[in-house]
């Protein structure tokens, strides 16, 4: 059983970010299932957590819904993370979620990165914003991310069509997730306690 969590940082409804997230989720699930892996999948929308994320940043502790989101993410074996591109980077809401996420939640986590934007000129946001952040969080970032410009939702040219890119990225990611296997969850509280016990010699 592989526990897949898809994070969507889209703001509007309907949201092209959510649309891309859903396509990636379906493609990854199909790849894993065709390899005989059972998949449990959930989507985590950040918009409903917007106030909770900012409150956590200001007050220093998470609300219950946010803590539940953290727990779901911590229990995942694989994560798909999709953000709109704002001002040549991820959206502030998307970044803020990871800024309040407890440390090590994503360590050793296979992550597929994806982004949406108005034009394809922002496609390198995957490489200069998303990939470094997830590397910093000690995630295992899948080599092939997916960027979708508005135009992509209306183009059908073979070879570089969005559908093909989604399929190719999902194929890579499914291989990565399968070879990583079930993720060993880290509990920083337990690690901290073990550190204290070692210092006390008990």
């Amino acid at each position: 059983m592989t526990n897949l969590v898809t994070i969507s940082g889209g703001l509007r409804r309907p949201s092209s970010t959510r649309l891309l997230a859903d396509r990636l989720e379906a493609a990854v699930r199909a790849e894993l299932e065709s390899g005989g892996v059972a998949v449990e999948s959930a989507v985590l929308e950040l918009r409903p957590l917007g106030h909770d994320i900012m409150d956590a940043m200001l007050a220093g502790f998470p609300s219950e819904p946010l803590e539940e989101a953290f727990a779901r993410l911590g229990e995942a074996d694989a994560v798909i993370a999709v953000t709109p591109a704002f001002n040549a980077s991820f959206s502030g809401l998307f970044k803020s979620f990871f800024d309040v996420l407890p440390e090590e939640t994503l360590s050793d986590m296979p992550v597929l990165i994806a982004a949406t934007g108005g034009t394809e000129r922002h496609s390198l946001v995957l490489e200069h914003a998303l990939r470094p952040m997830f590397s910093h969080l000690h995630a295992i970032v899948s080599p092939r991310g997916v960027y979708a410009a508005t135009e992509d939702f209306g183009t059908a040219s073979a070879g570089s069509a969005l559908g093909d890119r989604v399929t190719a990225a999902a194929f890579d990611f499914a291989r990565l997730v399968t070879s990583c296997g079930q993720r060993v969850r880290r509990d920083t509280d337990d690690e901290e306690l073990a550190g204290m016990r070692a210092l006390l010699g008990s």
Binding site: M54, D55, M57, L58, A59, G60, S63
Partner: peptide, 8 residues
């Protein structure tokens, strides 16, 4: 308040 003001 300091610490949590302007938050929740």
């Amino acid at each position: 308040a300091p610490v949590y003001g302007h938050g929740p």
